Amino acid sequence: MKKALIVWGGWLGHQPQEVAGIFRDVLQEEGFEVEVSDTLESFADADKLKALDLIVPVWTMGQIEKQYVANVSAAVQSGVGLAGCHGGMCDAFRNNVDWQFMTGGNWVAHPGNDGVEHVINIKHSSSTLLAGIDDFTVKTEQYYLHVDPAVEVLATTRFPVVPGPHSLNGAVDMPVVWTKRWGVGRVFYCSLGHQADIVEMPQVKLIMRRGFRWSAEGKQLAADAEAAAAVGSKYTGMGDSN
C-alpha cells in the first residue's frame, strides 16, 4: 500500500484543515495509507519522509526550518512524489527559495482578488495527465505566479482579466497546472484551490486526484529503472570480461 503524508497549517483563510480533509478522502479512495499532520515537525524525520510515496503540503505562508525543507527535498529527489495546490504549496514559506525551486513556482499576485471569473484552458501536450478534461470556467482567485521555465505546463489561464499595473504588458497565458522533476521525484501543482469549495469542484478534484496518482507512481518507476540499469551494467561487465 502506498503511503502519503498531508501536512496542513499556515494562514487559515485558505481553509487548510478542510482542504487536507478532502485530499485525505481522495487518497484513501485511491488506496493510500494516509497520515494527516498539523505540524511542520512532520518534516523533521528524513528517513520517514524517504519511506513515503507522496508528500502533500497544505501550508500557506509561515516560516519553516531550513533543515525541514532539506529533508523534503532529499525525499523528493530520491523518488517520493510532491503534489499540492494554490497557496498551500506555491505560496508556502516565502522566505525559502529552496522550497520555491523544488515546487516550480511562487505566487506573487491575484489581480481582482477573490471572485474573478476566468477560464482554465487545458493544454494538449505530450502528457496525458489531463486527458478528457475540457476547458472550464471558475470564479475565484486568478493566480499570477513566477514560474520555473523547466516545468511542463498542462493548463493555463489568460491575463489580464481585470485591470492593473500588469495590463499594458498585453495578454499572458499563465500556467495553472504543471509538472516537473526534482531528482527522480515527480512534482505536481495546480494553482486552483483558494478554499475547500473550489477544491470540491469536479474538474479540480479530478485534476488533483490524477496529480496525486502520477506523483506517487514516480518512486516505483525510479526504483524499476535503477534495477534495470543495474542488471544491464552487470551483463555489460560480464561481456567485457570475456
Rank of each mutant, 00 (worst) to 15 (best):
Q77A: 12
K3I: 02
Q15W: 00
Y189C: 11
G132D: 10
A150G: 14
T137F: 05
A44Q: 12
A223W: 02
T140N: 08
Q195V: 11
K3E: 12
A131N: 13
V76D: 07
K180N: 04
H124K: 14
D173K: 14
E200H: 09
L206Y: 07
H14N: 13
T39C: 08
Y235T: 02
N106D: 05
P163Q: 13
V34G: 04
G105D: 12
A222M: 09
T128G: 04
A171Q: 10
L40H: 09
H110I: 03
G104L: 09
S215E: 01
L154W: 11
G88E: 03
V76E: 08
L154T: 10
L168G: 04
L5I: 12
N121V: 05
V7F: 01
P165Q: 09
E33I: 05
Q63R: 04
D224H: 08
F188H: 05
L12W: 14
I133Y: 12
V172T: 01
A51N: 15
Q67Y: 01
E141T: 09
Q100N: 10
G170P: 02
G193R: 01
I64R: 01
V177F: 03
P163M: 04
P175N: 11
P149T: 07
S42L: 07
G10N: 00
G112I: 15
G10V: 06
Q17T: 00
Q220L: 11
C90A: 14
D38F: 07
Y189F: 10
F101M: 14
D38T: 11
G104H: 07
S127H: 04
R213W: 01
D148I: 08
G88L: 00
D173C: 11
Q28I: 10
A75Q: 03
F93M: 00
I120W: 11
D134A: 09
A171R: 11
E29N: 12
N113Q: 12
V151D: 01
V19F: 07
K66M: 13
A155M: 02
V176Y: 00
F188P: 04
L192M: 06
